[in-house]
Each structure stands twice: as structure tokens, then as C-alpha cells.
């Protein structure tokens, strides 16, 4: 009987999963480069830029993501900035996660030996080439474990989008649970999250191994 029950709620859970994955994937795709950009800005010699970015990081890391979601969706319209649900969720997630990534990248950038940069300068490489070919590959190796933690967090954090009425995986489970008065949907939801994080953990291990070829 319960197997039939699971196949019955499966389509709803699947559509929830696709929302979860879409928030997750797009956030990652946008927040990683933004975070890298912010981390470079945080090391800028231009003080006003640094102050601005410090403030941004402080606010986003110092307040709950849930609050930020509510603020973006319900608060911004007050200043005539109306975003539809999905864009609002993405906006809040990208801005939020970019700060965590920025802090991680900042540590990574700090760890690159200044001597590497001088060696590249002496070889007449341009600043952009030095960044792309010397600094970034060395930063990537350093940051992958920490980025990995945030990636796993992001999968689970994506369930917060329920608060602005988006139908993600957890919400699909909740609806089924309330309707059918059973905890079974939550078991199915947990199983799906576990599968997602297992796959991601595996991918992250591979990425770590990819950079393990030196030192």
C-alpha cells in the first residue's frame, strides 16, 4: 500500500525537486563568479569600494537568509522594486551565497604566495593572465573543500524558498503530509535530499582529487 502511495506522490515530489535543483544550480552558477569578484574587490586598494563590500558582506552574513528572502519579496516592492517569486528567491540566494563564497575566495587569494605573482610578472605576463593562469588555479585547489561545504548547505537552504510560496521539494512533501495526514512524504523527501547530497559529495571529492595532483 505504501509503495503505491509513494508512486502516487512521486510526480509532485519530482516537480518540487526540479524547483530545488533549479534554485540550487542557478545560485551556484551566479554566486560563484560574483563571490570571486567580491573577493577581489575586498582586496582592492580603493578604500570606498572595500568599505562598501565589507558592509555588503556584513549585512548578508549577519542576517538570516530567511529574513533576506522575505525582505526581497515583500520589502522591495515598498520601494517599487517588484520581483516575481522565482526571481526574488534567486536574487536573495545569489546575493547571500556570494558573500560566503567571497570570504572563502578571499582566504584562498591570501594564501597564494606573493612570489608566484612576482615570478609571473618577471615573465612579462599581464595582470589578467597572472590572475587566470597562476592565481586562480592555485586558489581553486585551496578553496574546494570549503566551497563544498557551502554547496551542500545550499541544497538544504534552498528549502527556505517555501516562505515566499515557491513549490520546492520540501514544500511538496509538506503539502502531501498535511493532505494525507502521514509522515511518509517527509521520508521520501529526506531520501531525495540524501541522494542529492550524496551525488554532490561525490562530485566534490572528484574535484578535490582533480586538484590533488600537486603538493
Amino acid at each position: 500500500m505504501s509503495w503505491q502511495y509513494f508512486t502516487g506522490i512521486f510526480p509532485a515530489l519530482l516537480s518540487g525537486t526540479s524547483m530545488t535543483l533549479s534554485i540550487f544550480g542557478l545560485t551556484l552558477l551566479l554566486a560563484l563568479p560574483l563571490g570571486l569578484l567580491v573577493s577581489v574587490g575586498l582586496r582592492s586598494h580603493f578604500k570606498p569600494l572595500r568599505a562598501l563590500l565589507d558592509f555588503y558582506v556584513w549585512v548578508m552574513r549577519g542576517t538570516p537568509l530567511l529574513l533576506q528572502l522575505i525582505f526581497v519579496f515583500y520589502g522591495l516592492p515598498l520601494i517599487h522594486l517588484v520581483l516575481e517569486r522565482y526571481s526574488a528567491a534567486l536574487f536573495a540566494f545569489v546575493l547571500n551565497y556570494a558573500t560566503y563564497f567571497a570570504e572563502i575566495f578571499r582566504g584562498g587569494l591570501q594564501s597564494v604566495d606573493q612570489g608566484q605573482i612576482e615570478a609571473a610578472q618577471m615573465l612579462k605576463l599581464k595582470p589578467k593572465q597572472i590572475f587566470m593562469h597562476i592565481i586562480l588555479p592555485q586558489v581553486n585547489k585551496k578553496v574546494i573543500p570549503a566551497i563544498g561545504n557551502e554547496v551542500i548547505n545550499l541544497v538544504k537552504d534552498s528549502s527556505l524558498v517555501y516562505v515566499i510560496g515557491l513549490g520546492d521539494l520540501l514544500r511538496a512533501g509538506n503539502i502531501a503530509m498535511a493532505r494525507d495526514v502521514t509522515l511518509l512524504p517527509l521520508l521520501a523527501v529526506a531520501a531525495i535530499y540524501l541522494v542529492l547530497t550524496a551525488v554532490l559529495t561525490w562530485l566534490l571529492r572528484r574535484a578535490e582529487r582533480h586538484y590533488a595532483y600537486y603538493e
Partner: peptide
């Protein structure tokens, strides 16, 4: 004008 550093500074990656 090329240079060789005291500590070489090869690119590890």
C-alpha cells in the same frame, strides 16, 4: 631581462 629567483618560484600547478 630574465631572472632566476633564489627560491626558484616555479608554478606548482
Amino acid at each position: 631581462i630574465g631572472g632566476v629567483f633564489q627560491d626558484f618560484r616555479l608554478f606548482p600547478h
